[in-house]
């Protein structure tokens, strides 16, 4: 747990220091990818509470979900299908669902 927090802090620091900036056109993709990875993290948290946490599933889900979401939005842009909002909705819904389940576990535990 501590290691995860340290990793997060290091990541934020890297992102602040790193001179890389996302072009305006791709900031949409990054936001979808970010949401997808957030969803994966909450999903992983939930599975950890359920004692079903699988490292491979978590890590593969994290990257594949993020990349696929970004890719789909990118392709959708060219087909004039605005998948951006769909992705936002789907991932947002799942995040809130996971949060509710996590909350219930906490309530049961303590």
């Amino acid at each position: 747990m501590i290691l995860a927090l340290i990793g997060l802090a290091v990541g934020v620091l890297l992102g602040v220091i790193c001179p890389v900036t996302v072009p305006l056109a791709y900031s949409k993709l990054l936001s979808v990818a970010l949401l997808a990875s957030l969803d994966s993290v909450f999903g992983g948290f939930r599975s950890a509470m359920e004692n079903k946490f699988d490292n491979t599933v978590f890590i593969s889900g994290f990257f594949v979900n993020a990349l696929l979401a970004a890719f789909l939005v990118y392709v959708g842009d060219y087909l004039s299908i605005d998948l951006y909002y769909v992705a936002l909705l789907a991932f947002g819904l799942r995040i809130f669902q996971n949060l509710a389940i996590i909350r219930r576990y906490f309530l049961k535990k303590y």
Binding site: L14, C18, V22
Partner: peptide
């Protein structure tokens, strides 16, 4: 994740 957060 933190990196993406900061970037975004």
């Amino acid at each position: 994740l933190g990196f993406m957060f900061a970037l975004q």
